Lab assay of single mutants.
Amino acid sequence: MDVFMKGLSKAKEGVVAAAEKTKQGVAEAAGKTKEGVLYVGSKTKEGVVHGVATVAEKTKEQVTNVGGAVVTGVTAVAQKTVEGAGSIAAATGFVKKDQLGKNEEGAPQEGILEDMPVDPDNEAYEMPSEEGYQDYEPEA
Rank of each mutant, 00 (worst) to 15 (best):
D2V: 00
F4S: 00
M5K: 12
K6H: 02
K6W: 02
G7A: 02
S9F: 08
S9R: 08
K10G: 01
K12G: 04
K12R: 10
K12F: 12
E13T: 12
E13V: 03
E13C: 07
G14C: 09
V15M: 11
V15S: 00
V16N: 06
V16L: 09
A17C: 06
A17S: 05
A19Y: 15
E20G: 02
E20M: 12
E20A: 13
K21C: 03
K21P: 00
K23N: 00
Q24D: 12
G25I: 09
A27N: 10
A27K: 13
A27M: 11
A29Q: 01
G31S: 15
G31K: 13
K32T: 02
E35N: 08
V37Y: 03
V37F: 15
Y39A: 01
Y39Q: 07
Y39K: 11
V40A: 05
G41N: 03
S42R: 14
K43N: 01
K43V: 11
T44I: 11
T44W: 09
T44K: 01
T44F: 11
K45N: 02
E46Q: 04
V48R: 01
G51Q: 06
V52G: 02
A53G: 06
T54P: 04
T54G: 13
T54D: 01
K58N: 03
K60Y: 14
E61L: 09
E61T: 07
E61N: 07
V63L: 12
V63I: 13
T64N: 12
N65R: 09
V66S: 03
G67H: 10
G68S: 05
A69R: 08
A69V: 05
T72S: 13
G73V: 12
T75E: 06
A78C: 08
K80P: 02
K80G: 03
G86V: 15
A90Q: 14
A91N: 08
A91C: 06
A91E: 05
T92P: 10
T92V: 06
T92I: 03
G93Q: 05
V95R: 07
V95T: 09
K96C: 14
K96D: 04
K97I: 15
K97Y: 11
D98A: 08
D98C: 08
L100V: 12
G101D: 06
E105P: 03
G106Y: 10
P108Y: 04
Q109N: 00
G111F: 14
I112C: 05
I112Q: 06
L113A: 13
L113E: 12
D115S: 10
D115F: 13
D115P: 03
M116L: 07
P117K: 07
N122T: 09
N122K: 15
E123K: 08
E123Q: 06
Y125K: 09
Y125M: 03
Y125E: 05
Y125I: 14
E126T: 05
S129D: 06
E130M: 07
E130N: 14
E131S: 12
E131F: 04
Q134C: 12
Q134T: 03
Q134M: 14
D135I: 15
Y136G: 04
E137M: 04
E139F: 15
